[in-house]
């Protein structure tokens, strides 16, 4: 007999729908107004895009296993957002160069993370946490605390507005779907993706099967940094302003989104579709807490506790590594 199992991404989507329906019952929820409900749902998915893209890098390093994690993601988002802001300075023509710089700088930070983890054998937690401090310091040094710049009109047009006046799908959502397709291809249709799952499951087997464990691992961190840099670019395209604490609030929810999406925190198993579903769940929880009109400080506490509960719940899946 085959056991009936729901795959984690599907479970996360079901959770999201249930949470959304519940949010309608709140005193100041959308109630029975379908139009409001749809626009609210659209808005939540739009907000989930930024968390989702930032969680992509996290997905890669968590799949790479052996306590893989990227705690520098928050500060990389801030750094690349500021760089984008400064480089673009309101010029449409500078958008592509800014995007490339954001990706390259993110990749560089990730590459250094990877070198430290593989060659200096620093645990990913310590390495990336230290890197987070370095990047934050670098932001302050470069900008002396004040930044002048501006995003370009085309960024707002593509990222924040609907695709077309009569189609109410935000541009960011379309970008996210294409991005999801890219991530799926990367994980499931490239040698790198296959090797990444292999090193996350068992590095001895991987090495004895001819996988270059070291460079696959470094590649995972560098790529994660690049994807986070892209995340920073998108974030500033949405907010239109930058500040030093811009990226940090994304960090912990991103890790939680990966876990909720069914990626094993011990590595070797997972998908980006799951992370996308997880990002929607996490965004919903945040908006739910806002709708409940909690004070900022209480909201932070509740959110933190919820994230811990989710991670501990999902982190309990047994690793089959022996």
């Amino acid at each position: 007999m085959k056991k009936f199992r729901i795959s984690p991404p599907v479970a996360a989507i079901i959770l999201a729908v249930v949470l959304f329906l519940l949010s309608g019952l709140l005193p100041n929820g959308y109630g029975s107004d379908v139009d409001v409900a749809i626009s609210q749902a659209t808005n939540i998915v739009r907000l989930a895009v930024f968390l989702g893209v930032i969680a992509a890098g996290q997905t890669l390093v968590i799949i790479s296993g052996y306590e893989g994690i990227d705690l520098s993601a928050g500060s990389v988002v801030t750094l690349t957002a500021i760089l984008t802001y400064v480089i673009v300075s309101g010029e449409n023509a500078m958008v592509i160069p800014a995007l490339l710089v954001a990706i390259a700088v993110g990749a560089l930070v990730g590459f250094i993370n990877g070198l430290g983890i593989t060659f200096l054998k620093i645990s990913p937690l310590v390495m990336t946490l230290g890197m987070s401090g370095v990047v934050t310091g670098a932001i302050i040094v470069i900008n002396h605390g004040n930044v002048s710049g501006k995003i370009a009109p085309i960024m707002t047009r593509v990222i924040a507005r609907p695709v077309a006046p009569n189609i109410p799908i935000p541009g960011a959502v379309v970008i996210w779907l294409l991005f999801g397709l890219f991530m799926w291809a990367l994980l499931e249709r490239t040698t790198f993706g296959k090797n990444l799952f292999a090193i996350g499951t068992n590095r001895v087997t991987a090495k004895l099967s001819g996988v270059n464990v070291t460079w696959t691992n470094i590649g995972a961190y560098a790529l994660a940094g690049a994807l986070t840099g892209f995340g920073g670019f998108l974030v500033v395209g949405n907010t239109g302003v930058v500040f030093i604490a811009l990226g940090q609030p994304f960090l912990f929810p991103a890790i939680a989104a990966v876990a909720v999406g069914g990626t094993l925190l011990s590595g070797g198993k997972g998908s980006y579709w799951g992370t996308m579903a997880g990002a929607i769940v996490l965004t919903l929880i945040t908006s739910l807490l806002t709708t409940m009109q909690m004070g900022e400080s209480v909201r932070r506490m509740v959110l933190g506790a919820t994230l811990l509960a989710l991670i501990s719940l999902y982190g309990r899946q047994k690793s089959f590594r022996q």
Binding site: N202, T205, Q322
Partner: peptide, 15 residues
């Protein structure tokens, strides 16, 4: 040393 225990037979064969 020989297997990726939680991965599929296909991925193990093709590693």
């Amino acid at each position: 040393e020989g297997l990726l225990y939680i991965r599929s037979i296909l991925e193990n064969l093709l590693l």
